[in-house]
Amino acid sequence: MSGLYPIPDTRFESTFKRALNREAEKQRTLQWKKMGVEDPLVINQLQKNQPVKINSYVVCKVVARDVIFMPLVQGLLWTSLLITMKPWLRSVIQNGRKFGTFIYRTVLGTDLIKKKQV
């Protein structure tokens, strides 16, 4: 293993252009298949000879999918996960405090947090 990993390109413009080209290519291939061109070699030759045309449908589809829908779904899933884990996280914090108090008491023999007198 060489230990060198490529750094992902997270800039919006280049990622968006790549998504547009990929979607336009997919739409063009579907259009050729509807016309009856099924041979992958012929499709490959057509792709090399004709540049990809990005129309408004492709732009709207990519914007809806990559800018609106996917962040919405990811946010909903992440929030649902955190809400579901909240009781477990609360118990982890409580047990961590108890363990920290136990260690502090063991090492120094006193309490770090003074108990409230009622």
Rank of each mutant, 00 (worst) to 15 (best):
T79N: 14
F102V: 02
R90H: 07
R28C: 02
F102R: 07
K33Q: 15
L30S: 14
R22D: 11
Y57Q: 15
K53N: 13
F16T: 00
P8Y: 08
T29Q: 11
T29W: 01
L41W: 07
I103A: 03
I54F: 03
K114P: 01
Q74C: 10
Y104R: 02
V107P: 02
W32P: 00
T15R: 13
I43F: 04
T110A: 08
I83T: 12
N49H: 10
G75C: 10
N95Q: 12
V37I: 15
K116P: 01
V59Y: 02
S80N: 13
S80Y: 14
G109W: 03
W78I: 08
Q117K: 14
K114I: 08
F102A: 10
F69G: 03
M85Y: 10
R18E: 11
F99C: 08
A19D: 09
M70H: 11
E23M: 07
P8I: 06
L112R: 09
M85R: 09
K26D: 07
F16G: 00
R11K: 08
V107R: 06
K34V: 04
V92Y: 06
Q117E: 13
K17H: 08
L72S: 15
T106L: 12
Q94V: 06
W88T: 07
K98G: 02
G100I: 03
D39C: 05
D9C: 08
N21A: 03
W88G: 02
V118H: 10
R65Q: 15
R18T: 09
P87S: 03
E13G: 13
C60S: 14
P8G: 04
E25Q: 10
R65A: 08
V37M: 09
V92P: 02
